[in-house]
Nucleic acid binder design. Structure first.
Lengths: 253, 253
DNA sequence: TGAGTACAACGTACGCCGTACGGTGCACGC
DNA sequence: GCGTGCACCGTACGGCGTACGTTGTACTCA
């Protein structure tokens, strides 16, 4: 790792943590403490409540002391992200699982993770995290789909596509929660207040198709949507591999 | 619309715009100008560059004057969002299109929209937009899938799932662009700097499956991933409707 | 024509934010 | 026992969103 590399510091922090100092006074904190406290705060009060000042206060240190451990808030977020996908959470599924079950479990665990840490969806806008836990997660995924008759490149695409679906579904789910919370109302109240406007819109004749939809069109739960899309994807995979098996060999590496 | 409704103001702004004043001096600006300037700014320099001060400066007015038109920055973002999905952009596809083509075109146009206005992916974390253009968009979608033998509720799920896929894929795409830009490097440089760390990780034996992947595993383009997932979804839909048609009637409303 | 009034413009200020900088004092190697 | 390198962190700067209150304009009505 040459000093020329401008990402060296960030990557080192992710993969090796902070080097132990030898000379000076004992550090009051450990990097892991800061990261853990950050995750706690973001889980509890949302990403917008995670400020360096609040975090420092929570840890009982001065604000600027945090910068002895972490070069910037952005870097802290990267550490938080990689921590949160940590091994305790990866699907410890028995390795002998059919690919369909494996993909379904992966998706469901992903959903639980995003629901437990909603800030992850807003946070990683800054930089693709290539930390050890993320990489381990990808390794686990690739192991789980080893037997699928797809090329490695296609498997990679599958990983991305599955994650997109999970993120997108959870995002929808959180959107309504947040909106209601910000306006100091419950989900239902929020809907209720929107209803009159929508009803007037329906009656205006500008939306002929919407106006004719059945009553329960918008009653679906977020989980239902999630499962619906997951089934579509898995069916799509199934069909693709049937097609390949039918016409002979697979081109998996 | 009673005054009790705490969302009345927001909804009115979206659906009816600002009421014309009769008494006082002529307003210097129009609401649409502000919204358009906001979109311009966010398109050009990113959402983080869109501050009320900069926006006001761009428009040649004092900062606080903007609040004569828009109650808050959040509300402005909602207006921007609904504007950007405006009718000029909706697929003006001939109504007699097969469902598969229709869904594919919808997805592709969505992708173009998100790529043209990347900030939309970060912005609508505040409130689900139920503006006239968004509703019109949904109406158009529902018209396009009218013939599909799915229930209305399932069609709604399909709309959400498709959008999730599009958003997720574009998000991945933008992520790398942004990361590189923030570090003042190109995409390739960014990769290059990460490589040594990854190679060391591969050689560590901690990621046995990843270490064995073929060379081109990570060479896929974002567009390729997008198409891959889209095909999976559409194949999934195809299979589902085959299944239904095989066993008799559909339960569409 | 003059008074009253509603409303547009916007300067100032408050309390947040991330973080650059530099001083203070601790703990170890010599 | 002292020099040195580092931990801690107070202060300050330039941003942010926006609450509040003043000023001046353009209309209605007497």
């Amino acid at each position: 790792m040459s000093d020329q590399n401008p990402l060296a510091k960030s990557l080192q922090l992710l993969w090796e943590g902070l080097p132990e100092p030898e000379k000076g006074p004992k550090p009051k904190l450990r990097l892991e403490q800061i990261v853990a406290a950050g995750i706690d705060l973001a889980d509890a009060d949302g990403l917008e409540a995670l400020s360096m000042r609040r975090l420092a206060e929570k840890l009982g240190v001065g604000t600027m002391s945090l910068y002895r451990y972490v070069p910037s808030k952005n870097e802290l977020l990267n550490l938080m992200l990689d921590t949160v996908v940590g091994p305790s959470h990866t699907r410890m599924t028995s390795p002998r699982l059919g690919w369909r079950e494996f993909l379904a479990i992966t998706a469901h665990e992903g959903r639980q993770l995003y629901l437990a840490h909603p800030w992850t969806l807003q946070a990683n806008w800054s930089r693709p995290v290539l930390g050890p836990n993320s990489v381990a997660d990808l390794d686990l995924f690739m192991t789980g789909v080893k037997e699928l008759p797809l090329s490695d490149r296609e498997k990679m695409n599958l990983a991305t596509v599955l994650d997109s679906h999970v993120m997108g579904a959870v995002r929808q789910e959180l959107l309504w929660q947040k909106a209601a919370a910000e306006s100091d109302m419950t989900d239902e109240e929020f809907w209720t207040y929107q209803l009159p406007t929508l009803e007037r819109a329906m009656e205006s004749g500008r939306f002929p198709t919407l106006a004719q939809l059945s009553e329960d069109t918008f009653d679906g739960t977020n989980e239902e949507t999630f499962e619906f899309g997951l089934d579509l994807l898995l069916d799509g995979v199934e069909e693709e591999i049937q097609r390949r098996l039918a016409q002979g060999g697979a081109d998996s590496a």
